[in-house]
């Protein structure tokens, strides 16, 4: 089913809560704004966040003649989304599954979803280096155009887990496009003093240490937090923000390497 997908981007992080889903959704939205056809696959089965972030909760996946039809964000069907959240009857339902069941669900997502022609497929992952990740890697081995974007926050505690994820990428042979540092600093709305709540510079020094390109840092921006749950692109709503700058550059870079091949 991935035959018609030109390029796959995995969003990974060893650590949870660093913003993988936020970055995946914003990346997909930015790509869409730039005119690409995009798919977004959420393989976090125990904690799917993508339906909420894109304001698609309560939508249903339909079975078409060619396979599962993803949920589309827009009328023109430029951004298709697939998540286990669409298959649960209530948003409080817990998916209490051990590895083998998760593995077969992900296989189905990769094999049975009819994405049509896609320029990019963005895959949002859960934290860790376990069942979900191994399964995705095994199934993507035959896809030549597959890269990973690593997300971290600046603190040592997060960096430590992301280092493990780098080792995972090396062991499984996936190329790393680069590291994004999220939640870099917070500008107090009252006095404009910038506080590095979770320290700073961690992502950049990790990139240097591991010899991986550094893709930029995204500050903590409460306006971004408000965009969550609405399915709006930062590049469109907050064009002047640092966040929007990072995503614009990222998509430019992706587009260049895309046209180059």
């Amino acid at each position: 089913m991935l035959d018609y997908v030109k390029r796959v981007i995995l969003v990974l992080s060893g650590k949870g809560g660093v913003g993988k889903s936020t970055i995946s959704t914003q990346l997909a939205l930015t790509l869409k704004e730039r005119g690409y056809k995009v798919g977004l696959l959420d393989i976090d089965l125990c904690g799917p966040s993508v339906p909420y972030l894109l304001n698609l909760e309560g939508q249903n996946v339909h079975q078409g003649p060619e396979g599962w039809v993803p949920v589309y964000l827009d009328q023109e069907q430029r951004l298709g989304v697939m998540s286990i959240g669409f298959l649960l009857s209530s948003r409080n339902d817990a998916v209490v599954w051990r590895g083998p069941k998760k593995t077969s669900m992900i296989k189905q997502f990769l094999e049975d979803v009819y994405w049509q022609d896609l320029d990019f497929l963005v895959i949002d992952t859960p934290p860790g280096t376990s069942d979900e990740h191994i399964t995705v890697m095994e199934n993507l081995r035959q896809v030549p155009q597959c890269t990973a974007i690593l997300v971290t926050t600046p603190q040592e505690v997060a960096i430590e887990d992301v280092r493990k994820e780098i080792t995972f990428c090396k062991k499984t042979g996936i190329t790393i496009m680069g590291i994004i540092e999220n939640m870099s600093g917070y500008e107090c709305p009252t006095c404009n003093e910038c506080t590095n709540i979770f320290s700073s510079g961690g992502g950049e020094s990790l990139a240097e240490y591991a010899k991986i390109p550094y893709l930029g840092s995204i500050p903590i921006d409460p306006r971004m937090g408000k965009l969550a749950g609405q399915g709006l692109a930062a590049v469109k709503e907050l064009p002047g923000s640092n966040t929007s700058r990072v995503f614009t550059e990222l998509v430019l870079q992706l587009g260049e390497s895309f046209n180059g091949t």
Partner: peptide, 13 residues
């Protein structure tokens, strides 16, 4: 080493 990743499926964990 802190770089060591534990790439295990469920049963091993």
């Amino acid at each position: 080493s802190p770089d060591d990743a534990v790439i295990w499926r469920g049963p091993k964990k």
